[in-house]
Nucleic acid binder design. Structure first.
Length: 806
RNA sequence: GGUCGCAUAGCUCAGUUGGUUAGAGCGCGCGCCUCACAUGCGCGAGGUCGUAGGUUCAACUCCUACUGCGACCACCA
């Protein structure tokens, strides 16, 4: 175990570290550590004392390959093609007639001890309380009536094998039927089974020691030979397999340890119901309840070679008769053996005073110790400081596949032993699937090794991608294109940082000491946008909406900071105004630092790197050793500046309009153009005040502002709000192109207007819609009408020119 | 068999209380080596939001049915 742990454990740790996960490595624990073993023994003893543990012989799920008991949850059911075999069991009193049973497992007939029919089934009234003779075996078994039998399934007659089927076991208990276990722990035919029941089978030679599937063939063959096989139908059945080795599970009768689960499950459901523990996304709470409500006692003993050995001892003197030797040094305890449950081996038997004990050879299901994890790792059962401080934790992040295996158990155990939930939130993250959406699995060979991906694209890009794709409640198809895209984002951030660093004068000014009085418009704007972004990012994280988190940061960093602000900042930096320049430097540094802090959880490596460079440049390096110790940014209320946002928004629209016109008219970027703007005095004075931005961003040479008068002829035109934008191109203008462009735009706006008018024409709409909605629609209509008017005028002028030319 | 989820641009996906010109990334088209970045910059094309009904003044958004995927749970032989 320890060798295995060393290898696997270090692989996992290396992966985690490569992923840039920052943990308190001093708290690393392994299930088999002494501290945890102690917690396991303590928990076991307490459960026993509280009557929540018992040892009993039950039909349990058994893996004949692993030779161990399995919990229900460790059995995976899989639709499998099989057959329904119809076998005829003749009546003892009249061999010429009989009952036909249908079964998916003909070999188990060797252990049948009854046939059941539904008491209401008219076909079988005559059969009740008669006896039938088992083919091959020759044993006489009773026909019983029980409403459990579904008359519509198969033949309506059900063979009862209490030793090898869960339902049959129940029925067997109800009618006190004998139990014949025909298999040994290998699922091979066990000869002794028949001798035990007083049979001297001559037919046994043929089956003895045969595996269950071989036995099936032989049974079918013999039934056929003897004329008892009536029919074989194809049938799909849900076959239970061992979750580890896929071997079909065999119901098997052995003594095992069980946890009485209902008393633990009840409170565990309650805390989710009353909100003391939140499952995110909520949808999983339904599954959680469904599972908890139908939960059966938990088989916790395992017959495997490693794990926590069960802390139960048996007095050799008292239990002698219940100890069965099964091999050299191996032994088994019958269901009658009385365990002494204790933290340590007892010194004296309370019954006989004997001092010789053997310890229960079984070990515990690993999930038993895992269930104690939230507190066993913190020193429980001691009242440690760690326990005080860290229990309960705020959130558990995990995949749905262990919601039942582990999470549910932690909740039950936490409530039982700590009297409190182990964590407040359970965030069920998406499962990463391959490009085709298939679940990754070793057997399918479609596993994506995170180390390889990180090697190719970088850890930061990989982490950011996972966050960006982690939309609530949806699995992730990991596409390399996507990672490549975010790799570019990392690069973009790097280059933006380079720009900022090369423009900082250095040393003299610190980013957080900026005086925010009389900043220029761009500075006000970006700080306002930053504040808004911080708020949205925080909201997203609080709600576990990591895709929104990533989206907002991507959008802000690339499309606001880089695309607009950095470009605008160049004007301030080159303005020759030292005061303005230093303020802009401050803002650049502030925004960059905030971006780094905001992104750090998803992009730890680049952000750390850039942050150090930034701190060095600002002369603050010694003060702050690592970005990780910084607190997460909070939005600065006073930075919020709606007016600046609105103004820059307008400026951006005009800029886009000019760029658009240039592009449509195939005007090369190298060529400066003249722009004439018509609009209200307010808007124009704003534009005029900020015209350096317009000139730089849209490559405009000269700008003219007019409130009314003749519109320029031969100009490409656009309408932004109430502002008309003209780019006079003189003879360069392509009349046809401009005409079709304007017509297209006109058609689009007319469409919009028609839609809005239709709404406004509907009296129900006016009467019933919210006032604000109506007002907005009216405003839209007015805007569209204005726009249509100017577009028509522009079209008119184009046609005029065309006319002149012709 | 039961339960739940998903169907939106060529691809992968967002769209939080019903009213937006339905968005992003990649891909695609056009134009650019504009002094942080061609892993880049600018502009653009592309969707009757799976089908059929219903509720509503108004539906991608709510309800029903259907179709097609997917997952989980399940002892009907």
């Amino acid at each position: 175990v320890w060798q295995w742990k060393k290898e696997t454990g270090s692989t996992i740790l290396n992966q985690l570290k490569a992923l840039g996960i920052s943990c308190d490595w001093s708290h690393e624990r392994f299930t088999m550590d002494e501290g945890l073993s102690r917690a396991v023994r303590e928990a076991f003893v307490r459960l026993w004392a509280d009557g929540l543990l018992y040892r009993a012989e039950r039909l349990i799920n058994w893996c004949p390959r692993c030779k161990t008991a399995l919990a229900d949850i460790e059995v995976v059911h899989e639709e499998t093609d099989g057959h329904l075999w119809h076998i005829r069991y003749p009546f003892v009193d009249d061999a010429s007639s009989g009952l036909t049973v249908a079964t998916t497992r003909p070999e188990t007939m060797l252990g049948d001890t009854a046939v059941a029919v539904n008491p209401e089934d008219p076909r079988y009234r005559h059969a009740i309380d008669r006896k039938v003779r088992l083919p091959i075996v020759g044993r006489e078994i009773a026909v019983i009536a029980d409403s459990y039998v579904d008359p519509t399934f198969g033949t309506g007659a059900l063979k009862i094998t209490p030793g090898h089927d869960f339902n049959d076991f129940e029925i067997g208990q109800k009618y006190h039927l004998p139990i014949i276990c025909i298999f040994d722990d290998d699922a091979k035919i066990r000869a002794a089974a028949f001798a035990e029941n007083g049979y001297e089978p001559t037919w046994l030679e043929r089956y003895k020691g045969k595996d269950r599937f071989e036995a099936r063939k032989l049974v079918v063959e013999q039934l056929k030979e003897e004329g008892h096989l009536e029919k074989i139908e194809p049938y799909r059945l849900a076959l239970g397999r061992c979750y580890r080795c896929q071997t079909p599970v065999e119901p098997y009768l052995t003594p095992q340890w069980f946890v009485k689960i209902k008393p633990l499950a009840e409170p565990a459901m309650e805390v989710v119901r009353d909100g003391r523990l939140k499952i995110v996304p909520e949808g999983w709470a339904n599954s959680y309840f469904a599972w908890m409500e139908n939960i059966k006692d938990w088989t916790i003993s395992r017959q495997i070679w490693w794990g926590h050995q069960i802390p139960a001892w048996y007095c050799v003197a008292c239990e002698q008769g219940h100890i069965i030797k099964t091999g050299q040094g191996d032994f088994m305890l019958t269901k009658e053996a009385k365990p002494i449950v204790a933290r340590e081996q007892p010194t004296k038997c309370p019954q006989c005073g004997g001092d010789k004990f053997i310890r229960d050879p079984d070990v515990l299901d690993t999930w038993f110790s895992s269930g104690l994890w939230p507190f066993s790792t913190l020193g429980w059962p001691d009242e440690t400081e760690d326990l005080q401080r860290f229990y309960p934790t705020s959130a558990l992040v995990t995949g749905f596949d262990i919601l039942f295996f582990w999470v549910a158990r932690m909740i039950m155990m936490g409530l039982k032993f700590m009297d409190n939930v182990p964590f407040r939130d359970v965030y069920i993250h998406a499962l990463v699937r391959d490009q085709e959406g298939q679940k990754m699995s070793k057997s399918k060979g479609n596993v994506i090794d995170p180390l390889e991906v990180m090697d190719k694209f970088g850890t930061d890009a990989f982490r950011f991608t996972l966050a960006a794709l982690a939309a609530m409640g949806r699995d992730v198809k990991l596409a390399e294109d996507r990672i490549a895209g975010y790799q570019n984002f990392v690069n973009k951030l790097w280059n933006a940082a380079r720009f900022v660093l090369m423009n900082l004068s250095g040393g003299r000014q610190s980013a957080d000491e900026s005086s925010n009085g009389d900043l220029n418009l761009a500075d006000q704007w970006i700080l306002s946008r930053l504040a808004a972004t911080i708020s949205k990012v925080r909201e997203a994280v609080d709600a576990y909406r990591f895709n929104e988190f990533a989206h907002h940061l991507y959008q802000f960093t690339w499309h606001e900071f880089c695309d607009w602000y950095i470009e605008m900042s160049k004007l301030a930096l080159n303005s020759g105004d030292a005061n303005e320049r230093s303020k802009t430097e401050c803002v650049l540094a502030t925004v960059l630092e905030n971006i780094l802090l905001l992104l750090h959880p998803v992009m730890p490596f680049v952000t750390e790197e850039i942050w150090h460079a930034l701190k060095e440049k600002l002369g603050q390096k010694e003060r702050q050793p690592t970005i990780m110790l910084q607190s997460y940014p909070r939005a600065v209320e006073t930075d919020i500046h709606p007016e600046a946002e609105q103004r820059v928004g307008y400026l951006m629209e005009i800029t886009r309009a000019v760029r658009n016109l240039r592009a449509e008219m195939n005007c090369p970027p190298s060529k400066e153009v003249k722009v004439v703007l018509f609009g209200s005095a307010d808007n124009l004075s704003l534009l005029q005040a900020q015209e350096r931005y317009l000139k730089a961003l849209a490559r405009v040479g000269a700008l003219e502002y007019r409130s009314d008068g003749e519109r320029p002829k031969g100009a490409a035109t656009a309408v932004v709000g109430e502002t008309e934008v003209y780019v006079p191109l003189g003879d360069l203008i392509n009349l046809d192109e401009e005409k079709s462009r304007l017509s297209r735009e006109l058609a689009r706006v007319e469409d919009e207007l028609a839609r809005v008018r239709k709404k406004l024409g509907n009296s129900d709409f006016i009467a019933k819609a919210k006032e604000e909605v109506v007002r907005r629609e009216k405003q839209k209509a007015a805007e569209f009408e204005d726009k249509i008017r100017t577009l028509n005028q522009s079209l008119g002028r184009i046609e005029e020119i065309a006319g002149d030319k012709a």
